[in-house]
Lab assay of single mutants.
Amino acid sequence: AEEIWQQSVIGDYLARFKNDRVKALKAMEMTWNNMEKKEKLMWIKKAAED
C-alpha cells in the first residue's frame, strides 16, 4: 500500500524538492508515518484490488 501511495505522490514530492530524490523520499516516509489509519486504509484497499 505504501508503494502505491508513493508512486502516486512521488512527482509532487520531487517537484517540491527540486528533484532531490533523497529529501523527497525522506519527506514521503515521514508523511506516510504521520498519516491517519483511515487515510492509509484507502491505499491498502487500492493495493488489494491490484
Rank of each mutant, 00 (worst) to 15 (best):
A1R: 02
A1K: 02
A1I: 04
E2R: 11
E2F: 15
E2T: 05
E2H: 12
E2L: 14
I4Y: 15
I4L: 15
I4A: 10
I4N: 07
W5Y: 04
W5I: 00
W5N: 01
W5P: 00
W5L: 00
Q6P: 01
Q6I: 12
Q6R: 13
Q6L: 07
Q6M: 13
Q7M: 10
Q7P: 01
Q7F: 07
Q7D: 09
S8I: 08
S8M: 08
V9A: 02
V9T: 03
V9C: 05
V9I: 04
I10F: 10
I10G: 02
I10Y: 10
I10V: 05
I10K: 04
G11Q: 13
G11V: 12
G11W: 11
D12S: 10
D12H: 08
D12C: 11
D12T: 06
L14V: 03
L14K: 02
L14I: 05
L14C: 09
L14D: 02
A15M: 11
A15L: 13
A15Y: 09
A15R: 12
A15K: 12
R16N: 06
R16C: 11
F17I: 02
F17L: 04
K18V: 07
K18C: 12
K18I: 05
K18T: 07
K18Q: 14
K18D: 15
N19H: 08
D20Y: 02
D20N: 07
D20G: 01
R21D: 05
R21A: 12
R21M: 13
R21H: 11
V22I: 14
V22A: 11
V22L: 12
V22S: 12
V22N: 13
V22K: 09
V22C: 13
K23Y: 04
K23P: 03
K23I: 08
A24R: 01
A24N: 00
A24D: 00
A24T: 04
A24H: 00
L25F: 10
L25V: 09
L25Q: 10
L25G: 06
L25R: 07
L25N: 07
K26V: 09
K26Q: 14
K26Y: 08
A27W: 07
M28V: 02
E29L: 08
E29W: 07
E29D: 08
E29Y: 05
E29T: 07
E29F: 06
M30V: 15
M30D: 15
M30K: 10
M30H: 14
M30I: 12
M30G: 07
T31C: 06
T31V: 12
T31N: 06
T31E: 14
W32N: 00
W32P: 00
W32Y: 01
W32H: 01
N33D: 10
N33Y: 07
N33W: 06
N33R: 09
N34P: 00
N34T: 10
N34L: 07
N34H: 07
M35N: 01
M35T: 01
M35D: 01
M35H: 00
E36S: 15
E36R: 05
E36G: 13
K37P: 15
K37A: 15
K37T: 15
K37M: 15
K37S: 14
K38L: 11
K38H: 15
K38G: 11
E39Y: 05
E39A: 04
E39Q: 05
E39V: 05
E39C: 06
E39H: 05
E39D: 11
E39G: 02
E39M: 05
E39I: 04
K40D: 02
K40R: 05
K40I: 03
K40N: 02
L41Q: 08
L41R: 04
L41F: 07
M42A: 13
M42H: 15
W43N: 02
W43T: 02
W43Q: 03
I44G: 07
I44A: 11
I44N: 05
K45G: 09
K45C: 13
K45E: 14
K46H: 06
K46G: 04
K46C: 11
K46Q: 07
A47K: 03
A47Y: 10
A47E: 05
A48R: 11
E49F: 09
E49R: 11
E49Y: 09
D50I: 15
D50Y: 14
D50G: 13
D50L: 15
D50R: 15
D50K: 14
